[in-house]
Amino acid sequence: MTKISVRVWRLVLAAFCALVALWLVAPSLIVIPLSLTDKPSFAFPPTGWSTRWYGNFFDDPSWTGALLSSVKVGLLVALVATAAGTATAVALTRSKFRGQQAVRGLVLAPMIVPVIVVAVGLYALFLKAQLLGTTFGFVVAHSVLALPFVVIPVTASLQGFDRRLENAAAICGANRWSTFRQVTLPLVAPGVVSGALFAFVTSFDEVVMALFIQSPYLQTLPVKMYSSVTRDTDPTIAAAATLILAFTTVATLTATVYIARRNRVR
């Protein structure tokens, strides 16, 4: 009797989880068929097929320009946030000092504080400093948002490995820098690589800050999408969404699988 009811419960739970998983994953996937519709509308499901919205996307300089800006800003953010974040993670895990908790809190704060509040203040600041719509402005703004996503995985991998390896290198005569270069860095590489990918994705996907610090000359892809959605029904948006989906999914999957595989090896 109980055995049967346990089995029924398991079945109910499995069905429930399948539905939740479907609810998590399926909605985003509908942009793919929509991007292949043959009508200039958002009618779903589409009744006929064409690839003309991709042609539209790549022929329109405002879309390709936005894509290029997004990729450029994303790569620079990955570079800046990864370098700064890795250094911070090393300082936070490798020494104890006054104010350590405060620094840790400050680094993680951008994940908690509502972005809209920071974005409005940033708009005021950039307005004065004439940084609106500049690559520099975008890169520093997004780097701060991306910082926690670098510090967290790098800290995790720094805490995960045997520190005696570093001591051994030092005993063998390596100085601090070459110990870091030849022992520490290769061992924390999975954390650094996934941090860089997450930093790229964070920037590539960011809308709220970008909405405030954009200018007609520099717009990122999500901002272009946002303003198009509010203005007109143009399936080119769906083509753009499909491209973003492909980009971010590949980056995230790479990062996740990379970490998982490294963990298994160890």
């Binding site: 998590l24 994953v25 909605p27 985003s28 996937l29 509908i30 942009v31 929509l34 958002f42 779903f44 997450f198 994705v201 590539f204 996907d205 809308v207 999500p222 999408m225 946002y226 959605v229 948006i237 769906a238 969404a241 973003i244 989906l245 971010t248 999914t249 980056a251 995230t252 999957l253 996740t256």
Partner: peptide
């Protein structure tokens, strides 16, 4: 994976749905 796939894409998908 959905956690990392674009907020903008997911919101747009809900607009359609």
């Amino acid at each position: 994976v959905p956690f990392w796939t674009s907020l903008m894409v997911r919101t747009f998908a809900w607009v359609i749905l």
